[in-house]
Amino acid sequence: MGLKTNTIISLENNEKYVVLNETMYGGVKYFLVMGVDDERNVIPTNVAIVEEIIDGADTYVDRVKDPELIIILTRILKSQI
């Protein structure tokens, strides 16, 4: 239950991402992910920050859209790179 860094996650919509970094902000966990193709090759231009949502035994991810929040999280995540 819950995402972990250094994993490849497959989503219900057939998208795949490698989970690179995590951080917490306002009590919520966010993860920096990068898209991967079916051969596990990373797509560098496909970068996203997603919010982790735990529902029972299931984990969901939701792409962060709020521009101000993205700026804050990016600053935090960049400092970890």
Binding site: N6, T7, I8, I9, S10, D62
Partner: peptide, 15 residues
């Protein structure tokens, strides 16, 4: 239905 897309699989990797 919660927000977001469900994670259906997770594989540990090395980077």
């Amino acid at each position: 239905e919660p927000r977001g897309v469900k994670v259906v699989d997770e594989k540990v990797i090395e980077t």
